[in-house]
Amino acid sequence: MVQRNLLGCATAILALSLATSVSAAELKQIGTLEVPGEPLNGFDISYVDQATNRYYLADRSNKAVDVFDGASGKMVDRLPGGFAGQLKSNDESGPNGVVVVGGEVWAGDGDSTLKIIDLKTKKVIDTISTGGKARVDEMAYDPKAHVVIAANNADEPPFLTLISTKPGHKVVAKIAFEDATDGIEQAVYDVATKRFYVSIPELKKDKAKGAVAVINPDSGKVEKLLPVNDCHPNGLVQGPGANLLLGCNAGVKGSGLPPVFVVMKTDGSVVKVIPGLGAADMVTYNPKLKQYYTASRGMPDGPELGVIDAKSNTLVQRIKLPGGNPHSVAVSEKNNHVFLPLNAKDGGCNGCVAVFAPGS
């Protein structure tokens, strides 16, 4: 079972609801996942493989990808891959982005390589260089074209690499973004349009001007840039239908922008600007409950976990967090558990993954 109230983490978190009473859909912390080994002070992307209900955490402190059972909360594997670990610079640290492709884990490392780990043997079966100098970060998978898209967000200029998941793992395309002056962030694949969508936080050093890049996996080219103003998009996830939620970094100290989230359609039309919360890194979506979850780590009064109703595109809950650099968030569609890693430095635990679920 999920470890409950482990190391006092649960008591350190205060839920602030925007509703007058607690509904069944509102989140409550139900416990934490203990991360053994070195204290969890360095981590990056977290990911749930919905087919197996396994939760994967890019654990830089222990130079591995940690695997938890999404139902019991028990750690079932730690996958070492010769990763760089947490170095002084995040740009050279790893593991970073994580995605599951069949029986393999694909994880980005700090030396511009992507490592493929076989889940049966627990061994690295291939290491792919993307040709840069800094880390391979966030990724997404196209099961139709059998291609993974991976971002080198810290290189100058930042670039995307499209890699075949077929034997040999051929690099099929490389796309540089000369005008992207603050990296490349979260990517998502849309089955309906058969396209990748990728957050571009900033264009030509203008913090108020960002974009979502539309990538054709077959041609390996950018088809268009969908402009996004006053958002500085980091996170990106697909919601119901053609809707995309942009996890705006707007609202973080020094951004000069008010905190918002933006809901946009895949054609670039803006559905709604949601005020009040922002300063986000990753975002995720639960189609079962039709809710988005936001890792709003940079709010001026402290980090928060946000809940947005995807039917009305309304902010419905804000959960105040003690600290812990909560920039990574993932959700299980099987049991509606939301996973939010917190570091050991100021997260209210010795480095743990806080677990939330709908209350009653």
Rank of each mutant, 00 (worst) to 15 (best):
G70P: 03
G94L: 04
Q86H: 11
V100P: 02
T52C: 09
G85W: 01
G97K: 01
Y56G: 04
S112G: 05
K88A: 13
R78A: 13
V67Q: 00
I116V: 12
D49A: 03
D91Q: 15
L79K: 12
A64H: 01
K120N: 13
G103N: 13
N90M: 08
D111A: 09
K115L: 00
N96R: 05
R60I: 04
D109F: 06
T127F: 02
N53D: 04
G73F: 02
N62M: 09
V65T: 12
F83I: 03
L79E: 10
A107Y: 08
A51Y: 14
D66M: 13
S112W: 04
D77G: 11
K74Y: 07
I117R: 08
V76T: 13
G102W: 01
I117K: 10
S129M: 10
A58I: 04
T52L: 10
V65E: 07
S89F: 05
T52W: 09
F68E: 05
Y56C: 05
K88T: 14
Y55C: 00
I128N: 03
G131T: 06
D59L: 11
L79M: 14
T130C: 01
V98I: 01
L79I: 14
N53P: 00
G81Y: 05
K120T: 11
G73E: 01
Y55A: 01
K115Q: 01
V67F: 02
G73S: 03
V105A: 08
V67Y: 01
A64E: 03
L119D: 14
K88S: 15
T121D: 12
D91I: 10
K63T: 08
V98F: 00
V99E: 00
V98K: 00
D126Q: 15
W106R: 14
Q50F: 11
A71E: 05
